[in-house]
Design a protein around this nucleic acid. Structure first.
Length: 425
RNA sequence: GGAGAGAUGGCCGAGUGGUCUAAGGCGCGCGCCUGGAAAGCGCGUAUCCUACGUGAAGUGGGAUCGAGGGUUCGAAUCCCUCUUUCUCCGCCA
């Protein structure tokens, strides 16, 4: 959520920037400004009435104490009319607040200066790439063909247990998955992240705090009767750790990391390119989250990008880093880098990480603030997060790029974790 | 799941209808003191909205004592609902 102050003071700038995201904010901003004016004038009036009532109450107390009961009764009679009037004004005020809020949450975050305009992934910027692309024409198989019939990843069994998109990993595949999780977590600790294990069900406040609600309700699984949501990413519980918190500036930057399963309904998004591990309803991910001083948040973003890059490099996967254009970015993000790994068997790039700076957009909803040492005032902090990394597509990348005859070679860095150096097919 | 006791500022903790503008302590900050420090002394120390002021300093108003509703001229205090913590019992990995 953008801060109201920004909209009040720089509405032309807000409208202009949002064009980069192909969002026409003119009407919405106009409504917000007039509603805000209404809200403030209602507040001034109710506050004045309340002040008057407070005064009267004090006088009445004083009169009783002085034994002037008759005068006190007279003063009491004055309050009734004011109270009634105030009740109505307060209702109007509350309604204006609610309506204002509902409009504010419809405005996406402003894109950062570096974000290129554009509407489709075609307009994204290639930042850099690395690793060695396989030579064409080697007859490399997609991962679902590689594992077909050898019982390593059992999609049908997952259907039996739950449904499509919930595979069962077995034997070396299960161990490889566990190895990857441990590898990512250990590397994260070396990079200065604090490991946490959050709940994977969250309440409505948390889903709202990071922006999954109100818009993406249909993308999350909901657990009744409590109405909890299964997290679509660890970003939700980990970032919400800081909801309603005021940090001192010297606590920044905060760097947290969590491994969790993630659950996504992906309603309506099942189509051609979603075979095998490419898109699942349940998958594992290690997520990194940072809370930063506003002056410092883009350094944080670069640091996170470099860190994620080091992970992909150490696994020896061909990758590219892409800066998303305005039209391809998420609602809450100010700038996003996607990491894609080349899946040699499919001949396509798979997104394995998305690293974003939300600036103060999430913090404003979360009421996550910091205070400088010599400053009385609180300021909104900046939040960032990224996958480091998402497991299934990394697994797909490893299977497809490291296939060699009838075996899959395990990258050296993983071997201490897996306990084997190849998977025989 | 049952019974009981709680939820007050960064922390501890007092406060059962008006003098709460929330006592006192701890912590923290600044100053005095000191060769320097400790101790001691003094001052300060929540958040949000709002009006004036440049978006500063500051001043005024309003709200917030777990959350929401109610009673009352007036609620931290009384009533109701919910959330949550602790203790005991039951169940349990």
């Amino acid at each position: 959520m953008l801060s109201l102050k920004l909209i009040q003071e720089q509405s032309p700038f807000v409208i202009e920037r949002l064009k980069i995201k192909n969002f026409n904010a003119e009407t919405l901003v106009g409504q917000i400004l007039s509603l805000d004016e209404k809200r403030r004038s209602l507040q001034t009036r109710t506050d004045n009435q309340l002040a008057e009532l407070n005064n009267l109450a004090k006088q009445i107390g004083q009169l009783y104490k002085e034994g002037k009961a008759a005068e006190a009764e007279g003063a009491k009679n004055q309050t009734a009319a004011i109270k009634e009037e105030n009740r109505i004004l307060k209702e109007e005020h509350a309604a204006a607040e609610v309506q204002l809020q509902s409009l504010l949450v419809q405005l996406p975050n402003l894109p950062y200066q570096l974000v290129p305009p554009g509407k489709t992934p075609e307009d994204n910027q290639l930042i850099r790439s690395g690793g060695k692309l396989p030579d064409a024409g080697q007859g490399l198989k997609p991962h679902w063909d590689l594992i077909a019939g050898n019982n390593l990843i059992d999609f049908e069994l997952g259907v039996k247990l739950t449904g499509a998109g919930f595979p069962v990993y077995k034997r070396e595949a299960a161990r490889l998955q566990r190895a990857l999780i441990n590898f990512f977590l250990d590397r994260g600790i070396q990079a200065g992240y604090t490991e946490v294990q959050p709940p994977i069900l969250v309440n409505e406040d948390s889903a709202y705090g990071t922006g999954q609600l109100p818009d993406k309700e249909g993308q999350m699984y909901r657990a009744e009767p409590e109405g909890f949501y299964l997290i679509p990413t660890a970003e939700v519980p980990v970032t919400n750790i800081f909801r309603d918190e005021i940090l001192s500036a010297d606590q920044l930057p905060v760097k947290y990391m969590a491994y969790t399963p993630c659950f996504r309904r992906e309603a309506g998004s099942w189509g051609a390119h979603v075979r095998g591990l490419n898109r699942l309803h349940q998958f594992d991910k290690v997520e990194i989250v940072q809370v930063r001083h506003p002056d410092d948040s883009y350094n944080g973003l670069e640091e996170m990008v470099n860190y994620v890059e080091s992970l992909v490099q150490s696994l020896g996967l061909p990758y590219r880093i892409i800066r998303l254009c305005g039209g391809d970015m998420g609602f809450t993000s100010a700038m996003t880098y996607d990491f894609e790994v080349y899946a040699a068997g499919q001949g396509r790039w798979l997104e394995v990480s998305s690293v974003s700076n939300f600036e103060s957009f999430q913090a404003n909803r979360l009421k996550l603030r910091y205070r400088d040492k010599n400053d009385k005032k609180t300021q909104l902090a900046h939040t960032l997060n990224g996958s480091a990394l998402a497991l299934p597509r990394i697994m797909a990348g490893l299977l497809e790029n490291n296939q060699s005859g009838n075996e899959i070679l395990i990258p050296q860095v993983l071997q201490p974790y897996t306990g084997f150096d190849r998977i025989l097919l």
